[in-house]
Amino acid sequence: MRESGEAAHGHHHGHDVGERLYIHRHSPLHDLPPHLKIVSLLTFLIICVATPIQNYWAFIGFAIVITTLLATAKLPVLTIAKRATIEIPFLVFAFLMPFFSKGERFEILFFEISRPGAIAALSIITKGTLGVLTAILLSGSTPAREILRGFELLKMPSLLVQIMTFMLRYMNVITDEMERMKVARLSRGFEERGIRDWKFIAGTAGALFVRSYERGERVHTSMIARGYTGELPKTEIPEINSSNKFLAVGIPLAALIITSVTGALL
């Protein structure tokens, strides 16, 4: 699926989790340097979340903006829907709220529900969905390693970025290890029945820790042997062209205009 387009450092690290999330397309959003994209989308989202839900028209505007961006990035609808299922527990929480909240009540269909509850539920669902879609847009249009490079360019402490780099790089190794341990458990005749079996699964967790730790040590010693001094090589700052700037400023600006115009109309 991935060629060489996003391999910014010019080398491959196998298929880590971030690369599985990334959807390779050619679009203005894919071309946006990661640090600009992070700041731009975060600012957009903060403006959305800070807008009161009573400003209903604004949220129709925000929805149009995020849908346009998702379409521009050519992310498949099914993938977006699948990733968005993560917010289902909160949707349930919000859907129940009008029934179990105090305040003025009104009747809808056959139910009597609370008006403040219904408004708050609408707010949680709308803002939560906008947030999930924004995050999906970011991770769908940016390889994980590029997101980390964005963090680095935004001056996140190097140790934190390094920890993240190692986490992504070894995520598959460790989850594969876990899968192998599961196979080993099954081949020893293990059967999952209930709480009685926790001891064995906890044994797996313990062994997994030991293996992760030992691998960490091994990686570290090899890195020292190759001349690691605690800093990873600095990445160069990507070139920013005028269409990048236009897009990066445009996204939050659109939200700002939407919220102030609709706010003034209220």
Binding site: M164, F166, M167, S212, Y213, G216, E217
Partner: peptide
């Protein structure tokens, strides 16, 4: 040792 903390995160 970033690798160690990184592997702990993966764990």
């Amino acid at each position: 040792s970033a690798p160690l903390a990184g592997l702990t995160a993966v764990f």
